[in-house]
Nucleic acid binder design. Structure first.
Lengths: 237, 237
DNA sequence: CCTCCTCTTGAGCGATCGATCAACAAGGGC
DNA sequence: GCCCTTGTTGATCGATCGCTCAAGAGGAGG
């Protein structure tokens, strides 16, 4: 029971050089820590322990604190690495691409976006941060709302000959229209990555089918939402 | 800084009767603990601490262990209280109600189901349990799949003159059809309860609108999925 | 070979975790 | 009035948390 360490490092006479903890450059060591922290905290949640993280990395626990002054700063770095760094400016370009119909822009954005976030670490750390009350999830979804959905809805208004957002501001129900389809796609990943359901081998194909089913009626529903939201007698029509 | 206790209980000479910790019957004390534990663990996650839970209840921490031998047993009790006990047999009756069209059964089930689970404790503990690797979420969603979606899909097959599940087993894509709409509705609650987004005042109305938008095309999509899933030359048609 | 810089570690600090135990206290039955 | 059952608590245990610090150890430059 006592000598349970798997390999190396003799128990007594502690000054024996370790085989695992090779000497690395500061840069590569920091990268190793960040990658390991992403995988570890994704698995056990942000309440994970620094000692266990160090054990998995094969390094001593104080070494973590040489590269990150606190556990919170390491988690902050994970946010940058997993969420901010994986945000693609191409998404914002896609939804503004005037050469494509709005529905096709939405479809292309969602397929690529979902492929990005249907990731063990992305989804689990996102949810864990939400549970812990961090503002990362709300801020991130605020970006989706303002940088993706808002310009898309603006062009959907134009495509349907509806008043522009300058003339008649976007209403919550319009965003809910897009968040509804969005949520159906996200839920596919959540069931697998967070709830541990084993079904659905090809989630990408499932999402493509969902979009095929939901998109055809979207513009009509959008028109209904906007016209109903504006109880003004239609003069110019 | 030292005498920071809010009320009662003198600091020194510790044997003073406490005003808050009144003597309760075992039954009502246990209920108080369960209710408080649900609220507390929903707020901070299942990694919450027994000392803080006891402090919020105004009782001593060891009292928790008189009613629940371990923290895990208390959490197990929460599962029974929040999930098993709130499962409504009426849901299984609704989706089998032959006097209603399948789409109406689905609509009624989802509206009532979502009203049940769009609850701070329900959603957050569900997600927290999933992150900690407990099998509660997968088992619960398995119940939804087998007891709700499976009988509903069977009758949808009949309503569309498609082969019964006995003749041709239900395929994963059919379940995904229902889980897609289901996920869009769940996501409305998740954004508010877990991700902390403040939007959407009347989530119930938003979900009703989502169903109005998604249900009309559901049967046609279902027919397409089933017929495509069976690459046999149609003879008897 | 020695030196110095820097990556790395063992030991340990104060705080806090889940859980235990003997002692206190509030009523109900006699 | 007393006693005995039972709800309740303070004190405390061993383990583990985030974090600190001084000393060990591996290379590059001289």
């Amino acid at each position: 029971m006592a000598s349970s360490r798997p390999k190396g490092r003799k128990a007594e006479s502690g000054t024996v050089s370790v085989p695992t903890g090779r000497r690395l450059t500061a840069e590569s060591r920091e990268r190793q820590i960040v990658e390991g922290a992403i995988a570890y905290f994704a698995e056990v949640g942000l309440d994970g322990h620094t000692r266990e993280l160090a054990r998995r990395l094969g390094i001593a626990q104080p070494l973590l604190f040489r590269y990150f002054p606190t556990k919170a700063s390491l988690i902050e770095r994970i946010y940058e690495e997993v969420y901010l760094k994986r945000w693609k400016l191409g998404w914002e370009e896609t939804v503004r691409d005037a050469s494509l119909p709005c529905l096709e822009r939405f479809r292309r954005f969602e397929m690529d976006y979902q492929r990005t976030i249907d990731d063990y670490a992305w989804l689990r750390i996102f949810v864990s941060a939400g549970l812990k009350g961090f503002d990362l999830p709300s801020r991130y979804l605020g970006m989706v709302r303002e940088r993706i959905f808002a310009p898309l809805l603006e062009d959907m208004r134009a495509e349907s000959n509806l008043p522009s957002p300058q003339a008649q501001p976007l209403v919550a129900d319009e965003f809910e229209l897009l968040f509804g389809i969005h949520g159906a796609l996200v839920y596919v990943g959540l069931r697998s990555r967070v709830y541990g359901m084993d079904g659905t081998a090809d989630r990408d194909a499932v999402r493509a089918a969902m979009l095929d089913a939901a998109l055809p009626g979207l513009l009509a529903t959008h028109r209904r939402v906007v016209t109903r939201a504006r109880p003004v007698n239609p003069i110019g029509e």
